[in-house]
Simulated assay, not measured.
Amino acid sequence: MVAETLAIGRDYPFIRNIESPLTRDMLRPLDPRCHTVQFSQALTESDYRTLSDWIGQYPSVTLRAYGSYDGSIRDLDFLRFFPSLHKFSADALYHSLQSIEGLDYLPASATLLGLGQTKKKLSLKPLGRFTGLRRLYLEGQTKDIDVISDLTSLRSLTLRSITLPDLSVLQPLTQLRALDLKLGGTRDLTLLPTIGQLDYLELWMVRGLHDLSPIAELKSLSYLFLQSLKQVTKLPDFSRLTKLQTVWLENMKGLTDLSPLLTAPALRQIAVIDMAHLHPEAVGILAKHPALQQVLPGLGSNRKNEAVRKLVGVPSGEGWSKPDILQVD
């Protein structure tokens, strides 16, 4: 989600920083690659109106409120000036944000929403009216989280620093294509195969998670991303995952046997990053995979990485990107 990757304090082609008073330079035409316009302190009412008119030219761009280092962003009532905004994120507002009731000013047809963690636990009930929502990012917000079950148009969902007893709240999301579980302690993945038609799954630093066996039933999965799962010591059998093409393994210190990857019939790309505990031979077994086209080794030294390349005999993967499903409107 945007909260994890946005730079602060300067503009990049992908981001436009604004503040009051608005200037002509701030409102110059956006680079076509720009995905976010953001501000870190409350604007004047006049500037909100001007910003609303200007950003209306860019319906694919997300408006982001963040930071509030001066404590000026305490609620989202400024959204009354944005009745046509379809993409909005409010994050890194831990100390200042006291209410999200202002979401009621957004159109029910909004397609992307992001809410970061706050010191005060906020009810997620205002999300219930966004029945056409396609992408949702939540961090640390668990009060009334059952409302997610009503968001049946969701295609992409990220839950960060959120612990669920199981995944039953996600079962109604029949159209879900991408699921990210980051941090938190959601250990029970038993219901994972009953959720949507997942193309992409990311599990990152999920505390206490050790059993990945439900992944073996995700027949629509094409991209699997696993990072920093300390208690995972075994990969599942991938033989039923006939669409799985990419596996990214990063800082998976408990893994020593990569041979289950050989069971994935369509596997084309494998990344093994920050895995210095492995010997080149442990990755070299992937040379036996008939469909493999790229291996990106990260075993802690150039010597070991070069040994992997020679053993596997396929090019290193460069410039990998996550699938298009994560860019849904």
Rank of each mutant, 00 (worst) to 15 (best):
L278Q: 04
G254E: 03
R240W: 06
I270R: 09
G196E: 10
Q227E: 15
Q175V: 09
L167E: 06
G185T: 11
L159P: 01
G254K: 01
S213Y: 03
P236M: 02
V247I: 10
T263C: 00
G185P: 05
D199A: 11
L244M: 04
R207D: 15
G208R: 10
Q245D: 00
K182A: 13
P214N: 04
R160C: 09
L267T: 02
I273Y: 13
K234G: 02
D199L: 11
S156E: 05
L224F: 08
A178Q: 12
S220K: 13
A216G: 07
L203M: 07
A178S: 15
P172R: 08
T163F: 06
L176E: 14
S156D: 03
A216M: 01
Y200E: 13
T152N: 00
K243Y: 09
Q269E: 11
P214D: 12
P193A: 09
L235I: 09
E250F: 04
L261H: 06
L192T: 06
A271G: 13
R177P: 02
P165E: 10
Q269H: 15
L244N: 02
S239E: 05
A271K: 08
S213V: 11
Q269K: 14
L226T: 06
M252Y: 06
D211T: 07
T163G: 03
L203W: 11
L179P: 11
S259F: 06
E202H: 13
T158H: 05
I215Y: 06
L151D: 00
S228T: 11
L278N: 00
H277G: 04
R268K: 12
T256S: 10
L212D: 01
P172S: 09
P265S: 05
L157S: 03
D257R: 00
S228Y: 05
M275R: 04
T233L: 01
L267H: 06
Q231R: 07
S222L: 10
K219I: 15
R160I: 05
P193H: 10
I273Q: 09
P265I: 03
T190G: 13
